[in-house]
């Protein structure tokens, strides 16, 4: 009798947990293959200009170091190269939300450049 009740209690406690795991987890996992969350391939607004200051391939990997290097040079040495400035990015990549932010959200990085610096929305 005792054994049976403890078995019932065990089943009653485990069942919702298992059900929860089965139910919640797959939904959570599906979110990553196109059902929600990232919603498939990353779509960025293509720039208006024809050519970037460096090749797109290179920029994809290195734009953060490139910008950071230029930032330090501009602040500390006063070296301002017009073509390499963040301001110059805005001439082709007119929307931050549809270009920078979209990829940053996708890859889960949060650069804080735009807390202070102005970039047209």
């Amino acid at each position: 009798m005792l054994r049976l009740s403890s078995l019932v209690r065990f089943v009653l406690t485990i069942l919702p947990i298992v059900a929860g795991l089965l139910w919640v987890n797959p939904v959570d996992l599906w979110a990553h293959d196109g059902q929600g969350g990232h919603a498939g391939a990353l779509r960025l607004e293509l720039p208006e200009g024809k050519e970037c200051v460096k090749s797109a391939e290179w920029m994809r990997r290195n734009h953060m170091d490139f910008l950071k290097h230029n930032r330090d040079q501009a602040v500390r040495e006063g070296i301002r190269v017009k073509t390499d400035s963040l301001k110059n990015c805005t001439t082709c990549h007119t929307s931050r939300e549809k270009f920078c932010d979209r990829c940053h959200t996708y890859t889960g990085v949060a650069p804080n450049c735009f807390e202070c610096h102005h970039y047209p929305k």
Binding site: E77, G78, I79, R80, V81, K82, T83
Partner: peptide
């Protein structure tokens, strides 16, 4: 006048 590249 504003140049392409300036330096302190």
């Amino acid at each position: 006048a504003p140049a392409e590249r300036t330096e302190a």
